[in-house]
Every structure is written in structure tokens, then in C-alpha cells.
Amino acid sequence: DEEIEKWIETLLKRNISLRVNGKDLEIGSEEFKEWVEKFIKEV
């Protein structure tokens, strides 16, 4: 979905790490990609 890709790009540009389930996810890491894929499937 384009919306999500733009959102991810924005996050990448800002180099933010997300806190997911109490863990810091490094943007661009494998864990982050897995989380994004799960997130996309749920939406």
C-alpha cells in the first residue's frame, strides 16, 4: 500500500526507532521489517 510505504519512508528519513511491545525496533532492521509486514497484514 502506497500510504504505508510513504509512512515507512518518512520514518526512515527521520531515523526513528519505534517502541513495539516494550522493545526498541531499529528502523530498517529485520525485526522492524517483520513488524511492518505483520502490521500491514492486520490493517
Rank of each mutant, 00 (worst) to 15 (best):
I8W: 08
K33F: 14
D1N: 11
L25N: 02
N21E: 05
K6N: 07
E30C: 09
L12K: 07
K23T: 05
R19F: 04
S29G: 05
E9K: 11
S29L: 12
L12N: 03
K38W: 14
I4R: 04
R19L: 08
W35H: 01
K6T: 07
E42S: 12
G28C: 12
K6M: 07
E42F: 15
E26Y: 09
I40V: 07
F32H: 01
K33D: 03
W7H: 00
R14L: 14
W7D: 00
G22N: 05
S29K: 05
V36T: 02
E3R: 11
I27R: 03
E9M: 13
L11V: 05
I16K: 06
T10A: 13
G22W: 11
E34F: 14
I8F: 06
E9Y: 10
I27F: 11
L12M: 09
I4S: 03
F32K: 00
I40Q: 02
N15T: 12
V20K: 04
E30Q: 13
V20C: 15
I4T: 03
E26L: 11
F39I: 09
I27K: 04
L25M: 08
I8H: 00
I27L: 09
K6S: 10
V43G: 05
L18Y: 01
E31F: 07
N21R: 08
G22S: 02
D24G: 04
K23A: 06
R14S: 08
D1R: 15
D1S: 11
E30K: 12
L12A: 03
V36S: 01
R14H: 12
E3G: 08
I16C: 15
E9F: 11
S17D: 02
K33Q: 07
E31Y: 10
V20Y: 06
E34W: 14
E2F: 14
I16M: 03
E9I: 14
R19S: 05
E30N: 08
I4C: 15
V43S: 08
E34M: 14
I4A: 04
E26N: 07
S17H: 09
D24V: 14
L11C: 09
F39E: 01
I8M: 06
K23F: 09
R14F: 14
E42M: 15
E26C: 15
E37V: 14
K13Y: 06
L11W: 09
K33E: 03
E26P: 08
R19P: 01
G28K: 03
K23R: 11
K13M: 12
I16Q: 06
K6W: 13
K13A: 09
N21I: 06
R19H: 06
I4V: 07
